[in-house]
Computed example of a mutant assay.
Amino acid sequence: MPLAVFSQADGPRRLGKVIGDQVIDLGIAAPGLPGDVAGFLAAGEPALAAYRAVGPDSPGALPLSAVRLHAPVPNPEKFLAIGMNYSDHGAEAKELGLDVPKWQVWFNKQVSCINGPYDDVVAPRVSEKLDYEAELAVVIGKTCRYLTPEEAPSVVGGYMVANDVSARDWQMRTGTMTLGKSFDTHGPIGPWLTLAEEVADPHDLDLRMLVNGEERQHANTSQLVHDIWAQISYLSQVMTLRPGDILATGTPAGVGVARKPPVFLQPGDVMRVEIAGLGHIENRVIADR
């Protein structure tokens, strides 16, 4: 029963608990809870206890079909992504002349790129090589530093579906990759946050990317080169991780730039990322204005 950010028509964004085909407005059912996901995670066990007490008969129920879902974490302190973290994606990158890294390679997606789970993705007028990357996103739930991999599971708040939309021509211009990964709208996430306690094994989740209904990527998170706990531990040696921080855990083979011949996204294309147990996001590509 995941945690969602929703609105009705042009109304304010509210926090809700998704139960079946309805969402329970937590501002009504549990008015003492924080009004945003990062605040909810930072509140810890008392917030979780109040959340668990909200059921299908709680006040504030609305049909999911009657609301708009938004990015669960719209303004994290950090949005980080790891490169070439599936061996098959590393192999296709090597064919493109890229070195497969020995260590974890991380880059920033600027938080201004965050987009809703069903909102349009803009094809920039300055890029001709727009691409997709289906990914599992981890959301940090506790402030932490200098963790061991064994300690890492205790700081995860939950999991989301993500699409690391990439302007490949801009990505390849510099070694940092940040600009090519950070265009406005190029970070769709959602459709909600599935809490860590509801995911039995994040290293056994099927994920796939479809473009216009055609499967382009299909893998399982068991294939991660550096697993989630290693990723969190590695980053925590460098920086303090805080509630709401987003970590995109890597994409498998099948990206457009590695196809023969390369196939890049065009206005009108529809990307759909699915992860078993976490739901899906779906975004249409539109032309820049």
Score class of each variant (00 low, 15 high):
Val37Pro: 01
Tyr51Met: 01
Ala61Trp: 06
Gly44Glu: 15
Ala53His: 05
Pro46Thr: 01
Gly83Glu: 02
Val67Trp: 08
Ala29Gln: 06
Leu69Ile: 13
Leu48Pro: 00
His70Gln: 11
Leu62Gly: 09
His70Asn: 10
Asp57Arg: 14
Ala66Lys: 08
Glu77Cys: 11
Pro31His: 07
Leu69Gln: 09
Val37Thr: 05
Phe79Cys: 11
Ala66Trp: 13
Pro46Ser: 03
Tyr51Asp: 03
Glu77Val: 08
Phe79Tyr: 09
Pro74Ile: 15
Val73Tyr: 04
Lys78Pro: 12
His89Pro: 13
Ala38Arg: 03
Gly55Glu: 08
Leu41Arg: 01
Ala42Gly: 01
Ala81Arg: 04
Val73Gly: 03
Pro46Arg: 00
Ser58His: 09
Asn85Ala: 02
Leu62Asp: 06
Pro59Ala: 03
Tyr51Ile: 02
Ser65Phe: 13
Pro46Tyr: 06
Pro56Trp: 06
Ser87Ile: 07
Ala71Gln: 13
Pro31Lys: 02
Gly35Pro: 05
Asn75Glu: 10
Ala53Leu: 07
His70Leu: 12
Arg52Lys: 07
Leu33Glu: 08
Asn75Trp: 13
Ala42Thr: 00
His89Tyr: 14
Val67Cys: 14
Asn75Ile: 11
Pro72Asn: 02
Leu62Arg: 15
Leu48Arg: 14
Pro56Asn: 12
Val37Ile: 15
